[in-house]
Write a protein that binds this DNA or RNA. Structure first.
Length: 293
DNA sequence: TTACGCGATAATACGAATCG
DNA sequence: CGATTCGTATTATCGCGTAA
């Protein structure tokens, strides 16, 4: 019907802007997919339930089963880490409690800066008044912050010429680390975590990117694990974790500002401990009845 | 880059019936 | 009895979309 080689999102979007019958069909298909996804994956499975509960895989076993390759937590039956905002707005703390969420700002970038000693990254990240995404956008994308953010988020791990130009010292680190991984077939994250990941070298480019990504993503999530331990020891009612964000319950009759400052203080201290040069940032903590609020 | 889960489809497994 | 066929059930794979 559409006379296209595929019906990928990208293909349909290009068709949709062209107008005409095929454009209308492409547009309707895209909207139908989005709606179907929301209903069948995120809403229908929750119908009739009064709570949402998933199971966390804390760490993989020796065969790398049951968890992630970097030490991240994963959630199954049901996945508590990939709900869209529309579902987040439906989830609320139980009676008598509020949901408290602490989010690390650009934690992976800070780990990348700390690990690689890149002076450009360190300078921007160590100053709470500066915004690395914006500065990247100013240098490369005419001030478009969204594109700067995408660059820092994704392009970093491709390790191509664009990264070499923007962050030469980080680029050097990717070369050194990849050489070491090729020698040993393992990527090891920094002290004191020393998480090891086997890298199948036969995987080519994918192996190289996985190798570059591993120490950074792994270090970031282990910092979050330290946070979970400290919060637990402080009596926290932990309920969820989303990679660089931790969530717990606090009494609804408490002082919200104090509750927020308590979590922010713990998280900022841990960040300073493991990221002495790149960890000087404020942690954003929200206290509210609903998740997305 | 790291995950999980859904729908559609393909591949495989298995029991019952049938045939030589 | 063994091989084959048919119909149904289960499992595997692919493509896509959501979170970080």
């Amino acid at each position: 019907l559409l006379d296209t080689p595929d019906t990928n999102k990208e293909t349909l979007m290009a068709l949709a802007v062209g107008g005409g019958d095929r454009g209308i069909l492409a547009d309707l298909t895209l909207r139908w997919r989005k709606a179907t996804k929301a209903l069948t994956t995120y809403f229908y499975p929750l119908r009739g339930q009064d709570r949402k509960t998933g199971l966390f895989n804390i760490t993989p076993n020796e065969d790398m089963e049951g968890g992630t390759g970097t030490g991240r937590l994963s959630s199954e039956r049901t996945n508590m880490q990939n709900d869209p905002p529309a579902v987040q707005r439906c989830l609320r703390a139980p009676e008598g409690y509020l949901l408290r969420r602490g989010d690390y700002p650009q934690i992976e970038l800070r780990c990348a800066a700390e690990i690689s000693d890149d002076p450009t990254m360190l300078a921007a990240l160590s100053d709470p008044d500066r915004d690395l995404h914006q500065e990247t956008a100013d240098r490369l994308f005419d001030g478009d912050r969204a594109r700067g953010k995408v660059f820092n988020f994704k392009e970093l791990y491709i390790g191509g010429p664009a990264v070499k130009a923007a962050y030469p010292r980080f680029y050097e680190w990717t070369r050194e680390h990849w050489a070491e991984v090729q020698r040993t077939s393992y990527s090891v994250s920094p002290e004191p975590f020393l998480h090891r990941r086997f890298i199948p070298l036969m995987a080519g480019e994918h192996a190289r990117m996985a190798a570059i990504n591993h120490p950074i993503q792994s270090m970031a999530v282990y910092i979050c694990k330290v946070i979970m331990v400290e919060l637990f020891q402080a009596g926290s009612l932990l309920v969820n974790q989303v990679h660089d964000e931790v969530q717990d319950y606090v009494p609804a009759d408490g002082n919200r500002d104090l509750q927020a400052r308590e979590m922010a203080g713990i998280m900022e201290a841990v960040m300073q401990k493991y990221l002495p040069r790149a960890g000087g940032a404020k942690v954003d903590v929200k206290v509210s009845k609903y998740w997305e609020d």
